[in-house]
Nucleic acid binder design. Structure first.
Length: 574
DNA sequence: TGGAAGTTAT
């Protein structure tokens, strides 16, 4: 009985087997005269993640004097896109053009996809405009092309002008928004998608969960989990990992752990996400335990996994373990620590007051320290009031990032907290002279599935009057508990009373006042912040949790704070 | 015998 090679090849997903079949076909001479078999092989290769054999196969087809047909170019171009083989893709285009095969719909789609992946959106657009026949596929490729190029506005414009959309279109625009850091818009597209009658699939839900994670939108994230259950959507590795991330970033590590334990199939990313989630919640020892469990389960950690564990050590103050882990990276796994790993280590040492060791590490690193490394050292200097070292760090920082506000703010804070107000003022003047903008603080809260956003000093919210009145009430109540505004962190050159006012309008205070105003007594409060919590807001939130008897979870730029009965889970260490 | 969309990190 003769083997049905075309069927065998098209069902084959393993590269090794595929190469074996190809070798048999070559040696038996069957490839010599068959464009069809070449096409089948090209297609099979293009379905593997790294279709390296596609290009020699195509060259061979030409060498045998065979003429490519309509099926050849789509597969070949897909391989070129995957391999980012630009010259080969361009010459394939030229060849298709010569043979008159470029205007076939599938070839056009493949070409548009190729140019989108290659970052040549102008060429992709020209093909789209010139194509007599289009379907959503080519538009979808271009939407993700614009997203990859960081041009979300163009992606949105194309989305709006498309004659018809399909599930993939919605998925592309939703994930595009998420990747472009515009998660709120992603969720808006998600509801629009459902109104338009499209059912989300697992790929869409992964992006939606990622949006919820960024926004801290627990209610919507839970809704997605519920949707999966009621629609029988299986928890794939992708979905499970996204769920874990969503729960961790929305302040519910326990629910994340539950998903993690129930997942039958896990990969390195799943572990890394869970480890990082535990780290953010200060459960450093748990994270370390999971890391060793991962190792014994046969997963080989990569550099990102190491960032995760080092991060766990930082948030839990585990200095010795951190040193040991950094050392084991190269010793046990042959992974050279990168800048990021040194950054974590500097952060770990300097937060724990080991400033000399941190400085030594910065100076002995095998690569040039970047702004993040100096920034970590600087943050430690602020906590442990080491003005000299802070000045040293800031010199490097200002050279590396002259336009970043963070540097100036940190230095001014160091000066202010050690009483050197004149110097603090000089920094502020320097900032003004160089026209450095301070990143505005921003807090998000979710009420009844809707996200409310507050900026520092924001008066745009429709209920701002009530919110400020509520704040007055809060302030008088927490003053009875001993609250005194901590004006050290305010570097504005203004008089005392205004300083208090500026503090009172920090975004998380506005957000918390708003939630107290709009939710029932005893309901927990969740806030997501873009910057680190300032010490005044930290103190205020502790007191509110006591006076109003509320559990308050604040996710700041790097970690979680769980405020309860007047104290915080970070033990005032952040 | 053909195509487009997804998860982690300082």
């Amino acid at each position: 009985m003769r083997l049905d090679y075309p069927r065998l090849v098209s069902r084959c997903t393993h590269r090794k087997q595929l190469n074996q079949i190809q070798a048999v076909l070559t040696s038996s001479g069957r490839l010599l005269s068959s464009v069809f078999l070449h096409n089948v092989l090209l297609r099979a290769h293009s379905r593997t993640p790294s279709p390296i054999p596609s290009i020699p196969l195509y060259t061979q087809l030409l060498r045998f004097g065979l003429r490519p047909d309509t099926h050849t170019f789509p597969s070949l171009l897909k391989s070129c896109s995957l391999l980012l083989a630009l010259p080969q893709g361009l010459s394939a285009h030229a060849h298709a053009l010569r043979l008159g095969l470029d205007s076939h719909l599938f070839a056009t789609n493949a070409l548009i996809h190729f140019y989108s992946v290659a970052g040549d959106l102008a060429s992709a657009r020209r093909l789209l405009d010139a194509s007599p026949e289009t379907d959503p596929v080519s538009y979808n490729s271009m939407i993700s092309g614009y997203v990859r190029a960081g041009d979300l506005d163009r992606a949105r414009m194309l989305f709006e002008e498309m004659p018809e959309r399909d599930t993939v279109t919605w998925c592309a625009i939703i994930s595009g928004c998420v990747q472009g850091g515009r998660s709120k818009e992603a969720l808006a597209f998600f509801s629009r998608m459902q109104i338009d009658g499209f059912e989300p699939n697992d790929m869409t839900l992964v992006s939606v969960l990622s949006a919820c994670a960024h926004l801290g939108a627990l209610e919507q994230g839970k809704w997605v989990h519920g949707y999966m259950r009621s629609n029988g959507i299986k928890i794939s590795v992708f979905l499970g990992t996204s769920l874990i991330d969503m729960y961790a970033k929305c302040g519910q590590v326990e629910l994340g752990l539950k998903v993690f334990e129930e997942m039958r199939e896990k990969n390195l990313l799943t572990y890394t996400t869970m480890i990082k989630g535990l780290a953010m919640h200060g459960q450093g020892l748990e994270a370390l335990r999971l890391f060793s469990h991962m190792e014994t389960s046969g997963f080989v950690p990569d550099d990102v996994a190491f960032i995760g564990v080092l991060c766990a050590c930082t948030h839990a103050g585990l200095v010795d373990q951190g040193r040991e882990i950094l050392d084991s990276m190269s010793r046990r796994y042959g992974i050279k620590p990168k800048l990021e790993h040194y950054g974590c280590m500097v952060d770990l040492l300097s937060r724990n007051g080991l400033l000399d060791e941190a400085r030594d590490l910065v100076e002995s690193m095998p690569m040039e320290p970047d702004a993040l490394v100096w920034g970590a050292l600087m943050a430690g200097c602020k906590v442990h009031r080491n003005v000299e070292l802070a000045e040293h760090a800031v010199k490097h920082l200002i050279q590396l990032e002259p336009d970043s506000s963070g540097v100036y703010v940190l230095l001014a804070n160091v000066y202010a907290s050690s009483g050197r107000h004149d110097d603090a003022r000089k920094v502020r003047l320097l900032m003004k002279k160089r026209q450095v903008e301070k990143t505005p603080g921003c807090s998000l809260v979710e009420i009844g599935g809707r996200i409310h956003q507050f900026l520092v000093g924001d008066i745009a919210h429709p209920r701002i009057k009530d919110i400020l009145l509520k704040w007055d009430e809060i302030e008088s109540r927490i003053r009875l508990e001993g609250y005194v505004p901590d004006k050290k962190t305010v570097l504005l050159n203004i008089d005392e009373e205004e300083k208090e006012d500026a503090l009172a309008r920090h975004s998380e205070k506005l957000a918390i006042a708003f939630v107290l105003l709009s939710t029932k007594e005893g309901m927990p409060i969740r806030v997501v912040k873009n910057l680190r919590v300032c010490s005044d807001c930290h103190q205020v939130t502790k007191l509110i949790s006591k006076v109003y008897n509320r559990e308050i979870v604040v996710r700041d730029r790097t970690r979680f704070h769980l405020f309860k009965g007047g104290s915080c889970s970070c033990n005032d260490y952040w």
